[in-house]
Design a protein around this nucleic acid. Structure first.
Length: 297
DNA sequence: TTCCAGGGTAACG
DNA sequence: CGTTACCATGGA
């Protein structure tokens, strides 16, 4: 054997307040997901690093660790480092959740959720273009159909390697026509929005790096300037992509339904009631939202 | 068949 | 400025 198997495995240290099983529940919530595969207690995903496809698998390791296996050949040290960095961001491993749990323990809505789903972390979408597209696709349609749209989009314009898919790049999507997306059953509006967002990213008018250098409020303002990105979408992207724990998609229907169920209400809360309920969540609204979403499935 | 879905825009008072 | 029609289709 020219290579030792152990050389294609990395150990990733995780904090105490992390449960890989909870991440897998979230990642595995749709059988129609096309950007990774969840199976037998592990998740496999394809990334492209410096132009090269890197296929990897995450599974549970010894206590306090995850095992990272590389599935297509031996990775370079740079590739290993890039994947570890990706995973830490994807699973939000570098977040100190102590303040969130301290707050949640005193909150009537969050207390039971924080206990039930202890160790759940926001599953992030590190790629800004993917996060924006996914948010726009999910506007005002049910989640099942949103997954169908994403799959069609990825399989039409993305790149595949060993039956795994990479999300399409903005440079390519920027050149598409509305009709090409309408064929996939995007509405005319969504098609326009996604093409325009792709153009903004391809030309550098919008970038993750630039958004991260702004205050959360300024980042939101910047995003909302773009057609198709309203307050809900901007906050969703702050939550899922920018790692902003104060992001709060106030008008989210799923959030409203989760609170309705949690409090046993006969109707969904009004926006005014939402603002009141969320006051104690200050700076942790994103985690409160994510735990409430979790309670829906 | 009806109603709702992880909203946003543009037109209207 | 706040409100309303419209987008468009799948899923329950």
């Amino acid at each position: 054997m020219p290579f030792a198997v152990s050389e294609s495995i990395c150990v990733i240290e995780v904090p105490d307040a992390f449960r890989f099983q909870e991440a897998l529940v979230y990642l595995g919530r749709s059988a129609n997901e096309c950007l990774y595969q969840v199976e037998d207690g592990c998740v496999r995903k394809l990334l492209k690093i410096d132009g090269a496809p890197v296929l990897f698998e995450l599974s549970s390791g010894e206590v306090g660790t995850l095992l990272l296996r590389f599935l297509n050949g031996m990775p370079s040290e740079a590739q290993k480092a890039a994947v570890v960095e990706y995973v830490r961001e994807w699973l939000d491993l570098d977040r100190d959740l102590a303040p969130f749990y301290a707050m949640a323990a005193e909150d009537s809505i969050l207390k039971s959720l924080a206990e039930k789903y202890y160790g759940l972390r926001v599953i992030r979408i590190p790629d800004l273009f993917e996060a924006l597209c996914w948010a726009i696709m999910g506007q005002q349609i049910n989640l099942a159909f949103a997954y169908t749209l994403k799959r069609r989009f990825v399989e039409a314009f993305g790149e595949s390697f060993q039956s795994y898919w990479l999300f399409p790049r903005p440079e390519q999507v920027a050149t598409l026509t509305v009709d090409e997306l309408r064929e996939l059953q995007f509405t005319g509006k969504k098609a326009e929005y996604i093409i325009e967002v792709a153009q903004q990213l391809a030309t550098g008018k919008l970038s993750k790096q630039a958004l991260l250098e702004l205050t959360p409020a300024a980042a939101e303002k910047q995003m909302v300037k773009v057609r198709g990105i309203g307050p809900w979408t901007a906050n969703y992207v702050r939550l899922r992509c920018l790692g902003d724990t104060s992001a709060f998609p106030l008008a989210d229907v799923g959030l409203h339904n989760a609170i309705k169920a949690q409090l046993g209400l006969e109707r969904k809360p009004t926006l005014t009631e939402m603002e009141h309920l969320a006051r104690p969540w200050k700076n942790w609204e994103a985690y409160a939202t994510f735990y409430l979403w979790r309670s829906l499935y």
